[in-house]
Design a binder for these strands. Structure first.
Length: 280
DNA sequence: GGAAATGTTTACCG
DNA sequence: CCGGTAAACATTTC
């Protein structure tokens, strides 16, 4: 369940595992583990925290390693699942007398895991894995700087949607929430970012935050059982979508039909009346 | 059978 | 370097 609200839903579920010790860990698919360090270096390690930046997750331990994870398009973490179909890695956990199995399940194998050494030489660098260092801060982080993000958007001529999807400026937004945020902010996905005013971009960021927060409260968006929390439960934000996958349906603001256009191999959904393209 | 699916990275061309 | 586009990765579902 791959955008910020879905990843945060997973993080919240995984955070219940803090205090568990890893008895045994192994990867089960050749594409899943994307580090030279093997999962079994974590044997004996106790989970200290589960963190998120944009769509990236990482665990910290009482061992000098991070376990970094990205769900890709179809990755799931499942605790003691009834029927995981595509097990890509397995962790046997224990806390007190209770044992659990954590499964990383991933149909399309675009998701991955990495074991990365903690950099003990610098507290600043060790605050986050090197893997996520180049990723932009997400709008839910305390140190998110919206003025900086706005300036970076305005410095570019590319269509605003492609920049929203650029995880190095502001992270967390994917195809669903980009369409939803742009609809809410009345901005055409292909409007060149440099033609948008400071206020329009400020509003766009706050719309993205608003829509993702609302989704998070409903457990994220689940079109099918692929996108579920660690207990296998689906989210219900699909029922609240206004633009994404709504092509052919009337816009809830003006009644015009939502249209879909293709860009970069993916679809954008927007209201042609409410979201007019900006021209220079 | 063809197309599409909520992501990221890389390549190519201009 | 920037922008636009496409492809690659792999699997399942509609």
């Amino acid at each position: 369940m791959p955008e910020l609200p879905e990843v945060e839903t997973v993080r919240l579920g995984l955070s219940q595992l803090v205090g568990n010790r890893i008895l045994h860990a192994q990867d089960l698919h050749p594409r899943t583990l994307r580090s030279d360090l093997k999962l079994n270096v974590l044997s004996g390690a106790k989970i200290k925290s589960v963190n998120r930046k944009g769509k990236f997750l990482w665990f910290t331990f009482d061992y000098p390693f991070y376990l970094v994870a990205h769900l890709g398009m179809s990755g799931r973490f499942l605790v003691d699942p009834d029927g995981a179909k595509h097990n890509r890695a397995e962790f046997r956990l224990r806390k007190g007398r209770s044992e659990k199995t954590l499964i990383f399940d991933d149909q399309r194998t675009f998701g991955w895991l990495k074991v990365e050494p903690l950099n003990t030489n610098s507290e600043i660098i060790s605050a986050q894995p090197a893997t996520v260092a180049h990723i932009g801060i997400d709008p839910f982080a305390e140190n998110f700087d919206s003025k900086k993000a706005i300036a970076q958007y305005q410095a570019r001529k590319a269509g605003i949607k492609s920049l929203l999807l650029n995880q190095e400026i502001m992270s967390g937004v994917g195809n669903i929430y980009a369409d939803e945020a742009l609809w809410l902010a009345n901005i055409h996905p292909n409007s060149p970012a440099n033609l948008l005013s400071h206020n329009e971009l400020k509003n766009l960021i706050s719309c993205a935050k608003k829509v993702m927060k609302k989704s998070l409260q409903k457990g994220g968006t689940s079109f099918d059982a692929l996108y579920v929390d660690v207990n296998g439960e689906s989210g219900f934000f699909e029922l609240s979508l206004n633009a994404y996958a709504q092509d052919g349906k009337p816009c809830k603001k003006c009644g015009s039909l939502i249209t879909a256009i293709k860009f970069g191999g993916r679809h954008s959904h927007f209201c042609p009346n409410c979201q007019k393209i900006k021209k220079g």
